[in-house]
């Protein structure tokens, strides 16, 4: 009997990473018996699995989105380890992406593999920071895997947002932001910048913000736009999903200054195409410097790249003489983040 080649117990399939001895899938794009879920964004956390293994926060987010999880769930707190079928050990570590987001450290046959899900390295008042952990294989995302993506300090972007509100008297500033994570981070950062007025919410944001508050994230005074008189919204900051920015919904608002909080706003043409007047370069993903810095710090034997602009990151690994491969996974979206 010959020895199995390294890491052969973990196999990338088109719709997810298969942990063969445990018969479990990481962030699978379709319903499976056992799913290890890194975080609550819809493209990573789909419903309908037999068993979902995730942090308690992620499970709460999934329950909010899909109703009560009708099937079994195993909550794993940060730093905790669960043993799966086949003796595979899974440890959930903070990824710094959104509330509850985790990297999953898998240990089997003396080999250590980390699957990051989505992550960032910047401080975020709504979730604990990414934890650098040594491993043999580092499976990383590459959403902003191009050297043009260097996210500016978030304080600069908050200053832009507050200045726009100040300069456009009588109007409101409408900020398009992902309903899970980005919206709450923008609110928390506004509070950190000393903004204490009511922040107004599109209906799609309300429950998720409440969930964050229930988990101890201080978001200050929030109120729903629905039913508010137009006059009350002058000089207000309003948060809505990106799809609502130019939707009929926004007609009720007093001459909104259209803002959008997204890493894609780095590129002028992307901002123009969306009709954004005030681009806020705020991302919950690692930018180019964070991606390359993290690979350097973790210093794995191999780097696997799941989704995003993997070509450039592969090239960087080649230039720095690191072993790397791109996994052709489907179903991850990056459009609005």
């Amino acid at each position: 009997m010959t020895m199995a080649p390294p890491f052969s117990w973990l196999k990338p399939e088109p719709f997810g990473l298969h942990v063969i001895p445990a018969d479990a899938w990481i962030d699978p794009a379709r319903a499976v018996d056992t799913a290890l879920v890194t975080h609550g964004h819809a493209d990573h956390a789909r419903g309908g699995h037999g068993l979902t293994v995730a942090t308690p926060e992620t499970l709460a987010i999934m329950a909010l989105r899909y109703g009560v999880l009708e099937t079994a769930a195993t909550p794993v707190a940060y730093g905790e380890t669960v043993t799966l079928k086949g003796g595979v050990k899974a440890t959930y570590l903070p990824a710094g992406h959104v509330l509850g987001s985790a990297q999953i450290l898998l240990e089997h046959a003396g080999e250590r593999v980390i699957v990051t899900g989505d992550y960032k390295r910047r401080a975020d008042p709504t979730c604990p920071p990414f934890q650098v952990t040594p491993c043999d294989v580092f499976v990383t995302e590459a959403t902003f895997g191009l050297p043009v993506f260097r996210h500016p300090p978030i304080a600069d972007e908050m200053a832009k947002l507050l200045a726009a509100r100040e300069n456009e008297q009588g109007r409101c500033v409408l900020v398009g932001a992902y309903a899970l994570g980005k919206a709450q981070r923008v609110i928390a950062e506004l509070r950190a910048a000393g903004y204490n007025d009511t922040i107004w919410l599109h209906g799609a944001m309300e429950r998720m913000c409440r969930l964050y508050q229930d988990h101890g994230v201080d978001l200050g005074d929030l109120q729903a736009v629905a039913g508010a008189p137009k006059a009350a919204l002058a000089n207000a900051i309003i948060i809505c999903p990106p799809s609502a920015l130019n939707d009929r919904w926004s007609r009720r608002l007093p001459e909104p200054v259209t803002a959008m909080a997204s890493g894609w706003m780095r590129v002028r043409q992307r901002a123009r195409q969306r009709g954004v007047e005030l681009p806020l370069i705020i991302s919950d993903h690692a930018d180019w410097d964070e991606l390359t810095q993290t690979i350097g710090q973790v210093n794995p034997a191999e780097t696997w790249i799941t989704h995003g602009r993997e070509e450039a990151l592969l090239r960087w690994c080649e230039l720095t003489q690191r072993k790397a491969r791109a996994l052709a996974l489907v179903g991850y979206e990056d459009e609005d983040d």
Binding site: P147, R150, V267, Q269, R309, A312, R315, W316
Partner: peptide, 24 residues
């Protein structure tokens, strides 16, 4: 200053030489 492959990938994505150079 920049690896030619990384330059080309970046330029193709951004779509504008001046903007790409300003970022890189």
């Amino acid at each position: 200053r920049v690896d030619p492959v990384l330059w080309t990938l970046s330029r193709d994505y951004v779509g504008d030489t001046a903007e790409t150079a300003s970022l890189l």
